[in-house]
Amino acid sequence: MIRKMEKEYAGAKLGIWLFLFTEILLFGGLFLLYATYLSSYPREFAIAGREMHLGFGTANTILLITSSLFAAMSVTAVQQGEIRKVLNLLGATIICAMIFLVNKYFEWSSEIGHGFYPDSPRFSAGPIGEALFFSLYYLTTGLHGFHVLAGVGLLTVVALKVRRGAIHAGDYVLLENSALYWHLVDLIWIFIFPLYYLVL
């Protein structure tokens, strides 16, 4: 019986990692496009990149890194059986994620307000590379934002299960795997941040 549990634990771990690999390749396609268009339009990308709000980007980076810390700590907490702490840490992770999304909302609104969006009159008139930068930016951060949203949902479900006692020190693979997913969302952002906000 114990051996069977071990087997299932290791299987679930392998399974979630395989899933994370597919996520890496999903975003990989967008990074591939970024690389190609950066190499074709380095100057236009530089100009477009300077329009980005570094403040929002940096704040969101710090938020995600911090939320990742909380998620990692929640795994430690559940391993040590500190259920109260698990709930607090998960709550903190979710709050960070929500603030991230709110920031993103304001950031996008401001950019769209300035006329930076696909097919906008401003881009139809201007040099062609800049529009590509913004198209990629919206698609990449949009897909990422969608993953943040999914992560919020997932972590909420996990928190409820912890409270119901379905996840505990003896069986916490769901929490661990959800935390892994959350770290992946963070990882993707770690690359989005320099590529879109800093590189040029």
Binding site: T61, I65, L69, A72, M73, T76, Q79, Q80, P194, L198
Partner: peptide
């Protein structure tokens, strides 16, 4: 089990690197 202090250390490093990358830019 990874202890809390170690995780916090990692977090501090991550923040330092974030600062570094903004500064370098």
């Amino acid at each position: 089990i990874i202890r809390y202090p170690k995780l916090v250390m990692v977090w501090v490093f991550l923040l330092l690197l974030t600062g570094l990358t903004v500064w370098v830019s």
